[in-house]
Design a protein around this nucleic acid. Structure first.
Lengths: 141, 141
DNA sequence: TATAAACTTGACCATTTTAGTCGGGTATGT
DNA sequence: ACATACCCGACTAAAATGGTCAAGTTTATA
């Protein structure tokens, strides 16, 4: 199971972006400064976000990134998926149905991880960028 | 966030143990063979489970491990906690309340990870070893 | 009482993942 | 032209993971 700071940074950066992209594109430099995330690392992350059509880029001076969808359409699942954070726990071969560890039967925890995966994914399905924006209004800079 | 095979092995091993400890203690060697987990690695795991009073050990020939509680009293939370699987996502300093990344305000995702942590922990609070035993009766060896 | 089964402890280690850095690009507004 | 900003791929130090290995101690039982 992976849920590390790459996913966290992606969310932080997108929330930042959502707040400031009303008129102009937002540069990674600004996000980097405001959120305290390395610029080079942000570029890696945004490259993936772009490939997954979560953001659009505008090159050249005064360029930057803008959201490609409404904040309420961007679910956290989408974000994590984009940056390769796999919310995934089962090491067992899924396709085989039985025989997780070379044995003839499903390993005893197989169903458990499946359930957990669903549980977590549901949580992320139901959270959008918009929810985070509202949630943090009071602590806004 | 960590939820790796150490936690998975711990659960697998304890389910195995719960099935076979009716009369005699169960040796790690047997668990190792049945579950396909390295004996040396199991020893590390059980050392922690013992420290956390989830199992008891009986030394000497015919020795092994037995559960220290009823299966329905052993929650998955307890197991993961014992083997140092931290179901924990926030990198931010919790105690500081504000100032996650050296900034003056809470980072925008702070509340999110708190929520997720609660969400996952609830899942594990509500699952006991007994649930897993029942769940897998049909695929039993 | 010798022996083997089983737990106990701690050090060690190869591989993979993480969280970046670095160095070069290319596009474009002014 | 030039500075700003995106683009892209290679590289890397440090940590985590998933173990192995060695050298014990304890105790049932033949």
């Amino acid at each position: 199971m992976k849920l590390t700071s790459k996913g966290r940074y992606a969310v932080m950066a997108l929330v930042d972006l959502a707040r400031f992209d009303n008129i102009n594109p937002v540069s990674l430099r600004d996000i980097s400064l405001r959120q305290g995330i390395s610029l080079d690392y942000l570029e890696q992350i945004f490259s993936k976000l772009k490939k997954n059509e979560i953001v659009k880029s505008i090159r050249g001076t005064q360029g930057g990134y803008v959201l490609n969808k409404n904040p309420n359409e961007i679910k956290l699942t989408n974000i994590f998926h984009a940056v390769d954070e796999k919310v995934k726990t089962v090491q067992c071969k899924k396709e085989s149905k039985k025989g997780c560890n070379g044995k003839a039967t499903k390993c005893v925890t197989h169903n458990l991880w499946d359930e957990l995966e669903v549980h977590i994914n549901t949580f992320f399905e139901n959270k959008s960028l918009k929810d985070l924006l509202n949630n943090n209004q009071e602590t806004r800079v």
